[in-house]
């Protein structure tokens, strides 16, 4: 009897070591953001299985990994948090002998301020926060934040603002003539007054924008480009505007954790998503642009040349990388936010 158990254990041990030879990689990513099709392709090509765990905010992801004992290999933080991840030593530099596709990163996304030279991270998806408008309800200029902050009569009571403090604050600060994370109290006073005065004209501050724009419950608001595009697929009068006073640009980036259990597999995965065809699979699923050169031709037809994915040339300079503000500034913003939502 004992021998059977011993044999069984040995067999079990053997089978686990076999499994780890085949390999796994544990991906910690935003929910509903990873193309299952692409994961299947990765497993078919490399024999490595990918386990995906979801997070719902940068703060959650950072707090969990800081605690240690998480068991993840790859994480996908937003650019504004990436410096914190790097500075706290939570990430491992990319092994360029495995990540041979490093050169596929589009030139404009290679030397980025949050990871100069892309030593630690590669693009996952990027997008902008701007103005969503149903042009059947309002047909004026949509490239202005006044749509939300000083709404025209026909949009009053039909506006939704996504409850993402840093994005909304950034648009309001640019609108008031300030810079990201400004400490200029005159600008902040203007921001507070504008927001407090505008809020009675808003209908909701909700994340579920796609279905509500498609159904006509919302007719304008602050939202993301990918979500707006998905709403447009269902209701073709929905359009996306880029506030000329300034709008936030963001990018989520994949990086390998310093305490990864499967660093080699993780590097292989990072290399895999830099293939244009695979990057396009990510975009086709998550509906945002990726930062990989020459992936456009692999995009699904409805996304090719979509106005939501290409910033008009005269407005490119208005796009600004949103920043994670210093604690004092963030505190100031969250006090204004609390006052707004009280």
């Amino acid at each position: 009897m004992k021998r059977t158990i011993a044999l069984g254990t040995a067999a079990l041990l053997a089978s686990t070591s076999l499994a780890s030879a085949e390999g796994v990689v544990n991906l910690y990513n935003w929910g509903n953001y990873t193309s299952p099709e692409m994961l299947e392709k990765f497993t078919a090509e490399t024999g490595i299985t990918v386990n995906v765990t979801d997070f719902d905010s940068n703060d959650t992801a950072l707090a969990r990994v800081r605690q240690g004992g998480h068991g993840f290999d790859i994480v996908v933080p937003t650019h504004s948090y990436l410096e914190t991840w790097i500075n706290e030593g939570l990430l491992m530099p990319l092994d360029k002998s495995i990540v041979v596709n490093h050169g596929n990163i589009a030139p404009e996304w290679t030397d980025v301020p949050f990871d100069p030279g892309r030593e630690y991270s590669v693009p996952w998806q990027w997008g902008t926060t701007g103005i969503t408008v149903d042009t059947a309800v309002y047909d004026g200029n949509i490239n202005t934040a006044d749509i939300v902050f000083n709404p025209p009569e026909e949009l009053k009571g039909k506006i939704n603002v996504v409850p993402e403090m840093s994005d909304v604050m950034a648009i309001a600060i640019y609108h008031a003539g300030g810079e990201s994370c400004t400490e200029d109290m005159e600008v902040m006073r203007k921001v507070r007054d504008t927001l407090v005065a505008a809020k009675p004209h808003w209908k909701a501050m909700d994340y579920s924008t796609v279905e509500n724009f498609a159904s006509g419950d919302f007719s304008a608001g602050i939202g993301w480009n990918g979500a707006t595009m998905r709403a447009r697929f269902q209701r073709d009068t929905v359009a996306y505007g880029y506030p000329e006073t300034g709008f936030p640009v963001w990018m989520d980036n994949a990086a390998v954790l310093a305490d990864a259990q499967n660093p080699e597999n993780a590097m292989k995965f990072i290399n895999f998503i830099l293939e244009p065809e695979n990057a396009a699979m990510l975009s086709n699923f998550a509906r945002y642009a990726n930062g990989v050169a020459e992936s456009d031709e692999f995009l699904s037809e409805d996304m090719q040349g979509a106005p939501e994915l290409t910033i008009p040339e005269d407005l490119v300079s208005a796009g600004k990388f949103s920043e994670a503000c210093p604690q004092a500034v963030n505190d100031l913003q969250s006090q204004i936010w609390t006052e707004l939502l009280q």
Binding site: S57, D59, M165, Q327, N330, D331, S334, W337, T338
Partner: peptide
């Protein structure tokens, strides 16, 4: 309000 402090408010 509590969730805000642990999330975006970072307090």
């Amino acid at each position: 309000l509590i969730a805000l402090q642990f999330g975006q408010g970072r307090n």
